[in-house]
């Protein structure tokens, strides 16, 4: 399992992460980010890509 943290004080709900890891990140109908705090190891590459594309650099994988 990998652990994921998003700094919600930084997150601007842009949803770029949604395209890289749709199984982990999601924008709800109120334009707010929802995400899984834990995901399967098979999601690691996608979440790494989400880390790269987040404009606010708000996403961390906690090792």
């Amino acid at each position: 399992m990998i652990k994921i943290q998003v700094d919600m004080a930084l997150c601007q709900h842009y949803g770029q992460c949604v395209f890289e890891a749709p199984n982990v990140f999601h924008l709800n109908d109120d334009d707010k980010l929802e995400y899984l705090a834990e995901a399967d190891d098979s999601e690691r590459d996608n979440v790494e890509a989400a880390v790269d594309v987040c404009p606010m650099q708000a996403i961390r994988i906690v090792e």
Binding site: H13, Y14, G15, V18, F19, L27, N28, D29, D31
Partner: peptide, 11 residues
């Protein structure tokens, strides 16, 4: 401007 979730499908 705003409307973040609604913007995504246009991508």
């Amino acid at each position: 401007l705003g409307l973040k979730a609604a913007l995504l499908p246009y991508r």
